[in-house]
Amino acid sequence: MKRLTPYPVLVGDVSLEVREARLDDISLPFAMISVPQRMVALHQVERERWETARLSVRLRTPRQELASGPWRDEGCYAVLSERRTNVRTTARLHQEEPGIWTGDVVVHRDRHVGRVQLTGHVVATVDGTAGRQIGTADETWTIDLKARTPVKSTTIRTVWADFGDEGNARLRPFSADPWTVESVGEEPVLYLNKGFEGLSTMLESSRSVDRAARDAVSAQIAQDVWTSLFNSAVYAIDFESGPPDWPGGWQESVLKRLLSDVFPDRSPDDALAELANRRRTGDGGSDLQTRLLHAAAKQARLPRNLGAFIRTVRRSGQENE
């Protein structure tokens, strides 16, 4: 996919940086802001009930290019957006010196639920038309309202629970299972059974002797997770009204990670269309499952981890003989 604009745009780099964050005017430790991860963690135990977070941002534009180009009335904006709430908040930045634009953007807690994207944009009047976008910051920042550390962890959530415990009514039927996946709602959860003897110690083990078995089990778990989540995500695709649409949320993420291996010779959009087509027509279901197993195994790095495990077992078996 290539974009074409009917007017000249910036070629040089535009970069966006969060300089400081304040929760209700109280400065957040800088450790909560990670420049390399482009991430701000807003969750602090001590300040559970904050209302606004004020982020100081700085945008750098190619000074020379912007000054000599065919644009007028250049302006820079920082935009907060969250797909789940479909909220957009725009803050105008002011030019501190040529090429450097700064300003504050305010995150209102009650407008967001999880992760907010922060982007930087350069607009100008081109050919007499005002407010045309001529540049976008290369990087997008993530403002996480729930994270305590500025780590872009986009891992499927894992919960350790004793499946046999009285309090876990939902999990009790699976008390004999080592793990299970819950793929309903906003966030899918992988439940690992604390009551399954040895599972937690093995998965948390950092000993080299446990590594092969640990990684093989991890791969097995991951394959189950991906298979299960993919099958749930397929049902989240809306294909009733016109062309199929990406479902958003974790379902979209799951589909995007897996489809390139399910249909390796198709672009993501094409693969989505193919998937919707098969669902609609009811054709190719078995073939899809075979392809899915392959994609999930690859995602879980099953071949490598299982192979290492088998080699280890064989080796120790020979030693014991």
Binding site: T154, T158, S200, D215, S218, Q299
Partner: peptide, 10 residues
């Protein structure tokens, strides 16, 4: 678990 973290990236 660390061994799962990389396998479950979204």
């Amino acid at each position: 678990p660390p061994s799962l973290r990389d396998l479950l990236r979204l």
